[in-house]
């Protein structure tokens, strides 16, 4: 039994170890995908055979603030040689922050054959595993996606308002400074800024990275995660939970933890997050 299987997760199969990845680099039916915050990392060296899916260029709509539509997702899959039966194995920098975001977008289109590499890029490089600058090319595929499902794991502003009024739990995964409103946005960074600081009323502050072990970026064991989300913050597995951050990427990580590792059935990611809420007229804010 692997270390991952011993950690008490609700769905341990959604994680693979770096060792597993090293042993499956050439396994048919698997596509390794790197998703990073830092655009320099993949070209500077990546897991052999991995393709890059970039959060700005590949996952977001080029014009509207939204994600790909069905046809665009199908094109992305075809370009990267991914079929409906391919198991997509995500990894990335920052404790898999952006890899979890890509994973979440894939779930909007129902691609459930998806896994995260525990520890991501950090653990892979710490173990001195091979990296290459060779960008692979795979034969284009035919991929048929479902229509994007925004109803199950994605939350919109008005739904969040209803959620707040019903006093249901929210998790604010930003830094404590952002939660208190001390840090609004950085100078010269208006595109991710907000006119008001603070947090959505009732939201509990659990910075996203608390779910990861800082030494190697792996996820904490289920008992440790429960101590944070349930012991400290009072969440319950049967709760309807909405997670948010600034633009919805860090909260994808927390969505992943609550949904797959702790087995919560009803967790949504509010990707409008603080850049929408903190700029919206008339919505309630707490400091």
């Amino acid at each position: 039994m692997s270390d991952i299987a011993n950690r008490g997760y609700a769905n341990p199969d959604v994680l693979v170890s770096t060792e597993w990845l090293a042993n499956n680099l050439d396994t048919p039916g698997i596509r390794i995908v790197e998703s990073n915050e830092d655009p320099l990392l993949y070209p500077s060296g990546h897991v052999p055979g991995a393709v890059q899916i970039d959060w700005t260029h590949d996952l977001n709509h080029p014009l509207r603030r939204d994600y790909l539509d069905k046809a665009e997702f199908e094109a992305l899959m075809a370009k990267n040689g991914i079929t409906n039966d391919t198991t997509v194995v995500f990894y990335g920098d920052k404790n898999n922050w952006w890899a979890a975001y890509a994973f979440w977008v894939f779930q909007l289109f129902g691609h459930t054959k998806a896994k995260l590499v525990d520890g991501g890029r950090q653990k892979w490089t710490q173990e001195n595993r091979p990296l290459t600058r060779e960008v692979p090319s795979y034969p284009a595929t035919q991929y048929v996606a479902q229509e994007r499902d925004d109803s199950t794991i994605r939350a919109f502003r008005d739904q969040v308002l209803t959620h707040v009024r019903a006093q249901k739990p929210l998790v604010d995964v930003r830094s404590p400074q952002e939660y208190t409103g001390e840090l609004l946005h950085m100078p010269n960074y208006p595109q991710e800024g907000a006119l008001r600081g603070g947090h959505i009323p009732g939201a509990q502050s659990v910075p996203w990275a608390r779910a990861a072990n800082p030494d190697d970026g792996t996820f904490k064991a289920a008992a440790d995660l429960r101590a944070i989300y349930e012991g400290e913050k009072g969440l319950k597995p049967e709760d309807e939970v909405i997670a948010y951050c600034r633009i919805g990427e860090r909260s994808s990580h927390t969505w992943f933890v609550l949904t797959y590792l702790l087995g919560y059935k009803n967790v949504r990611n509010y990707d409008g997050s603080w850049t929408e809420w903190g700029n919206s007229v008339g919505v309630p804010i707490e400091k």
Binding site: E37, D38, P39, T56, H57, M186, N188, Y189, E192
Partner: peptide, 8 residues
């Protein structure tokens, strides 16, 4: 396109 965290 550099992210806010990175830009910061």
């Amino acid at each position: 396109e550099v992210s806010m965290g990175k830009g910061q």
